[in-house]
Design a protein around this nucleic acid. Structure first.
Lengths: 230, 230
DNA sequence: CAGTGGATACTACCATACAAGTGTCGGCCA
DNA sequence: TGGCCGACACTTGTATGGTAGTATCCACTG
């Protein structure tokens, strides 16, 4: 089975629309396309060598997760980061993932459990190499494995949509192994609690992990005010 | 502010694509389009008097919430109801909404609080008239008001996507005022607990409310096996 | 000189036409 | 008669042209 990052359109894996949506999503999250950027169907189509139609569909997909805002007959722009929405997204994610790890304490798929060890290993390696992209990918896979292992893959689908509001902030806070390595430790703490079948400890560990982002938020907002909404 | 049912495409409120998506979603949830139905872009376009393009965009939107499955170069079908996915969706929803009502106990917007009283009144009226459509609409608005009042409208957005897996089952269980009226009482119990600022009681009430659907599930599955996946 | 009205250059939106892939049905062959 | 092979009908995917709406800029007016 191929490991597909975006599982929303299992049927559209190879379509131009899906390719472009993934590409644009990546560019937005990595801030290559900074908030406020104007996106033109025409330009993007030319740049990717396709027609405007698939580009349009890609933009609609991004609009659904609120990464871009389509203003009819006016234009499409990359939305600015909203601290308020990020806080809300974090709150919802905390609600889902603490419930997931609690469930994981009752029963956890053995295959997923094995996979998690591998993922943690690779993530730590990525952190030491200061490879943000790989780190974030493994982070995502870790949480996916958690949801799947707990028997609730749908939980991750739900998270994926709201996570978009947090990803760009994470992108700003990650640089430097000293920021990434502690996150791996937090992951380990979660797994340890699950192995011990200690619901409260697992939920507590997840809560600490998801609260981490709040620490650096004021700093990054002060450093890059132009990326945030007023 | 206009009360928009679907807030995913604020920019597309009047667009043909959005109109058709809403219409199709309604038809699927009300089981007018039963699971397994084949949907043809061509036919739908003709029936609505538009071209294939907006229909296509509508179908992509529905595919994102897994209401339909697009099989490239083959066709698009209404997905069957999956008990497994419904259980997962219920679990995730429970996680989110119990967290929301807990938060609501700390602080709750006064305007939303007033609105909830009106909604409960109207919902009870709809129940007595045996008006499923109105009942379900008010039910949705109740949960929206809860999320907004708690200061987390994003929570409802997240729920909307996964709720699709539950709505059709609800559609099957609702008929008859004797099924609907208890649900209104459960809503009242939630509000009462929030007014008393009793977190645990509120979460407990919400949990009972969201567990209700499990009671009737075996019956409807036995009565309509053709609607469910094997 | 400030303010207003209109032509213009964009935009997203929709319609139409074409391309590419898939399942089916019927004829052909062994 | 059973199995294989090819044409056809149907699907979604993509390309292109035209339409309607909005913002901008500039000439014109008070």
């Amino acid at each position: 089975m191929r490991t597909a990052v975006n599982t929303h359109f299992p049927a559209h894996q190879g379509s131009a629309a899906q390719r472009i949506e993934n590409e644009l999503r990546r560019s937005i999250i990595t801030l290559e396309l900074p908030p406020g950027s104007r996106l033109s169907e025409h330009d993007i189509a030319e740049r990717h060598g396709v027609s405007r139609q698939p580009v349009r569909e890609a933009l609609i997909g991004l609009a659904r997760t609120r990464l871009v805002e389509i203003q009819p007959q006016r234009g499409t722009i990359v939305v600015k980061i909203s601290v308020r929405k990020m806080m809300e997204a974090r709150f919802v994610r905390e609600a889902i993932e603490t419930a997931v790890v609690r469930r994981a304490c009752s029963s956890f798929d053995r295959q997923s459990r094995q996979r998690i060890d591998d993922l943690l290993e690779m993530q730590a390696h990525a952190a030491r190499r200061d490879d943000h992209a790989a780190f974030q990918r493994y982070d995502e896979l870790f949480h996916v494995a958690l949801a799947e292992g707990a028997g609730c893959p749908l939980a991750w689908e739900a998270i994926q949509d709201i996570k978009a509001h947090m990803d760009r902030v994470c992108q700003l806070t990650l640089p430097g192994p000293e920021a990434m390595l502690p996150l791996v430790d937090q992951h380990r703490a979660i797994v340890t609690a699950i192995d011990a079948c200690d619901e409260n400890a697992a939920a507590e560990a997840m809560l600490r992990h998801l609260t981490e982002i709040l620490r650096a938020l004021p700093r990054v907002e002060a450093e890059h005010p132009e990326l945030f909404t007023a």
